[in-house]
């Protein structure tokens, strides 16, 4: 079941098109990567989902219903451009933002207490935001985004500016939220940063969707049946079933990228190698999302 269905969304600004007939589904309960270079249209799409702006044409369905203002309180949005009221105290700020999301004062207070324990920030509650370190501010910001327990959480460039420790903390929180049933949309241009987190992705380039689907399927589609082998011995492949793409020899140690041709299986290659050399490592070379993206973009240009 999809929590969000984007159907032919187009958005034009005065002198450029931000989104051109973009359609894809976001399954419920997954971590979804909305990927693409800067200026591809990611933020425009997110602003349409969060109803900050409207689409020129096309529809978006949230949990099967056409998007409407009441859906806002079931979404949490961490914009790329983020900030807090510097002169407000942490506790007041969280209470205020949670109430704006429709929580009552009592609910909000209770939730804040939970999070304060989880993030161990009790002693900050009466500090002004401007007195906090940047990492602390980001934790507060993240809390404010998910405080109202939305079923859809949208994070725009979530790890930009996070130090590694806090980034890991946030990653753990995101996984926990996903396990509790929330759907998370990651929007980023740094594709490698979310590759291991995402279940599904959509690639956007120049206001068009390039491809979308489960990460595993995409990788299967784009894998090239290439294996990297490292071992001892003199490797000389003469079989017509395999093609050596790259080979380095160094004091009897070799490293080679070998492609299977015409229905040969990995085991065929392994058997062939074992008879001739000593194999230390045998790994499939899976294309990264980044590689796939670049390939896909090249294809669309040449087409």
């Amino acid at each position: 079941m999809s929590i969000l269905k984007i159907d032919g969304v187009t958005k034009r600004y005065a002198n450029h098109t931000a989104l051109d007939n973009v359609s894809f589904d976001i399954p419920a309960g997954c971590i979804f990567g909305l990927l693409g270079p800067n200026g591809a249209g990611k933020t425009s799409l997110i602003r349409i989902i969060t109803q900050i702006t409207g689409a020129d044409s096309g529809e978006i369905y949230f949990k099967g219903e056409k998007l409407r203002p009441s859906h806002i309180k079931d979404m949490g949005y961490l914009p790329e451009e983020r900030g807090l009221y510097k002169k407000m105290k942490v506790g007041e700020q969280l209470l205020y933002l949670a109430q704006l999301k429709g929580l009552t004062k009592d609910e909000a207070t209770a939730r804040i207490k939970e999070w304060v324990v989880r993030f161990e920030i009790k002693e900050w509650m009466n500090k002004h935001i401007e007195d906090l370190s940047k990492g602390m501010q980001q934790k507060v910001q993240f809390m404010a985004t998910v405080m109202h327990e939305p079923s859809l959480i949208i994070l725009d460039e979530p790890f930009s500016g996070f130090d590694p420790i806090n980034a890991n903390l946030i990653k753990d929180e995101i996984l926990r939220l996903r396990d509790n049933g929330a759907t998370i949309i990651f929007s980023t241009h740094r594709m490698e940063s979310v590759e291991e987190l995402c279940d599904n992705i959509a690639l956007i380039n120049r206001s068009r969707k390039v491809l979308d689907g489960p990460v595993r399927e995409i990788k299967d589609t784009y894998k090239t049946d290439t294996y990297q082998v490292i071992g001892n011995g003199q490797l000389l492949i003469t079989s017509p079933d395999f093609e050596v793409l790259e080979q380095h020899d160094n004091h009897g140690v070799f490293r080679a990228s070998i492609r299977l041709l015409d229905g040969a299986s990995p085991n065929d290659l392994l058997r062939y190698l074992i008879q001739r050399v000593e194999v230390h490592s045998f790994v499939e070379l899976v294309p990264s999302i980044n590689d796939i993206f670049i390939r896909k973009v090249k294809e669309t240009y040449h087409a």
Partner: peptide, 8 residues
């Protein structure tokens, strides 16, 4: 903070 606000 404005974008945080107007998402609410």
């Amino acid at each position: 903070i404005v974008e945080v606000m107007i998402s609410s």
